[in-house]
Write a protein that binds this DNA or RNA. Structure first.
Lengths: 135, 135
DNA sequence: TAAGTAAAAATGGTGACTGTTTAAGTTTTA
DNA sequence: TAAAACTTAAACAGTCACCATTTTTACTTA
């Protein structure tokens, strides 16, 4: 059974475009060029499709909703920032366009730990490794 | 066992100040001198303490949160107003800086009845008393 | 050193808003 | 013309903004 190569090509094009725009936007957020987080409708507009269609198409192409990729990248960024102990958690929240309360909820929901718990666990693991090295 | 009278004097001072400012503010609301309801941070500013500290201190001094006294007084005022049948419920809500929907939610949550139910029950009880007197 | 204070973070609640899903339809294209 | 691409509406589920409270940590002062 031969599967035509061009079938469903468009949906993968849309998914690729979305991921590209998503990364670009997150770069803008981190560099301060953008201070407001895009919503699905903003990405849909960039790609010239209806928001509902964007959502459905990306789910069909990748098995995940647009939001999933968004959250995945945000967690990655948040973890990296938390490894810098000098950066207050409220400031990290602000950069990621969250208020402190909702940032904690978001991080705990997807990471299983509160931001502070993650930071502490990270530094404890550093110390533990250092002790092993020094011994 | 002697308990020194001055111990924890400050927390009771703060609680008293809060209750005083609360009543003053509610007077302003009722007279129309104020149309926006104060929040905890507004009272904290008046008393020159941190909002968190105000909340903690009042809980320690009285066993109740600032919100509790606020709600208690609002319910009292609302009940009094509802006893005046000429005053539309939406107008009562407006004076108390609620929109009608949220006023009903608030009143039912703390009073167990909707404002309209309370008003009707109140007038039925008046009529019942009158009948007893006339008999 | 107990009491007072400040501040950061976590937690809880709520109304408004946003995202996803589903279902039904229209347009495009191979 | 049938599959694929797309739109729209409506239901619902989830998130965000905002506020209050609680917990924890830390600093100051009588």
């Amino acid at each position: 059974m031969k599967i035509p190569q061009k079938f469903f090509a468009r949906r993968h094009e849309i998914a690729a475009d979305y991921l590209k725009e998503l990364d670009k936007h997150l770069d803008d957020i981190l560099s301060g060029r953008a201070t407001e987080m895009f919503e699905v409708r903003d990405f849909a507009e960039l790609i010239h499709v209806h928001p509902t269609h964007l959502s459905n198409t990306i789910k069909a192409a990748t098995g995940h909703s647009p939001c999933y990729f968004f959250e995945e990248r945000l967690m990655e960024i948040a973890r990296t920032m938390l490894q810098n102990v000098n950066m207050p958690i409220a400031e990290i929240a602000r950069i990621l366009t969250y208020d402190p309360s909702n940032f904690t909820k978001f991080f705990k929901h997807f990471g299983g730990q509160t931001p502070k718990q993650y930071r502490e666990a990270y530094f404890e693991s550093l110390v533990a490794n250092k002790e092993i090295v020094n011994t």
